[in-house]
């Protein structure tokens, strides 16, 4: 269990972040950081729950790093039109923001955030035209939505779950827009798994 001093410090930090306006942090960032307060109050032992949360967050960070690298590949491919490139770079920026928030959270929880790999296995030889790149990116985004959907129930801490849901929503929007760009039904079903 966390001691009162630690909890108060975290609460003060959250108050600072939300009241000064000098630091621009998303609601997700604040929720994640705020969630640290209750990460210690789980039903499992503190260390077990904490270790599990850190592992889950690090798995998410690893996938986000891969997404950043994938968008970089797409951006440098020369296959994207100016308009699509702008969108791709924007989406890549979102993934970078996800990493920053998730990694900060891992560190606040006392863990080490995973770094990006030096290289990734991407189907480079199959990316010959813009739609190939968009399909590739859409597949990653779709997979990310599933990954977050599968991870959210594991968080004992509802603040972490809410924050992960916020990221999931962002990635679902990416997926829908990429599908739209591919002339596919952007929202193919009422339910998602």
């Amino acid at each position: 269990m966390k001691n009162d001093t630690t909890i108060n410090t975290a609460l003060e930090r959250r108050g600072f972040l939300t009241s000064t306006g000098k630091l621009v942090l998303s609601g997700t960032a604040i929720a994640l950081m705020g969630g640290i307060n209750t990460a210690c109050a789980g039903k499992k032992t503190y260390s077990d729950q904490l270790a599990q949360d850190v592992r889950i967050l690090n798995t998410a960070i690893a996938a986000e790093h891969e997404a950043v690298a994938a968008y970089q590949l797409g951006a440098e491919s020369g296959l994207l039109s100016a308009g699509i490139l702008k969108v791709a770079v924007k989406f890549q920026g979102h993934h970078k923001e996800h990493i920053d928030v998730l990694a900060n959270t891992v560190r606040k929880l006392g863990g080490d955030a995973v770094d990006a790999k030096r290289s990734y296995n991407f189907p480079v030889s199959k990316l010959k035209k813009q739609s190939d790149v968009l399909s590739f990116a859409a597949g990653l985004e779709r997979g990310a939505v599933s990954a977050y959907a599968g991870a959210i129930p594991l968080f004992d801490n509802s603040d972490l779950a809410k924050a992960a849901a916020s990221i999931l929503a962002d990635e679902a929007m990416h997926w829908a827009i990429l599908r739209q760009a591919l002339n596919l039904d952007p929202v193919p079903a009422a339910f998602f798994s």
Binding site: A62, A63, Y120, N121, G139, R142, G143
Partner: peptide, 17 residues
């Protein structure tokens, strides 16, 4: 179709997350 849930982290032929 269900395997689509796995592709956020897994691939058939190479290691990912």
């Amino acid at each position: 179709d269900i395997y689509v849930q796995c592709i956020g982290c897994h691939s058939l032929t190479y290691h990912r997350t």
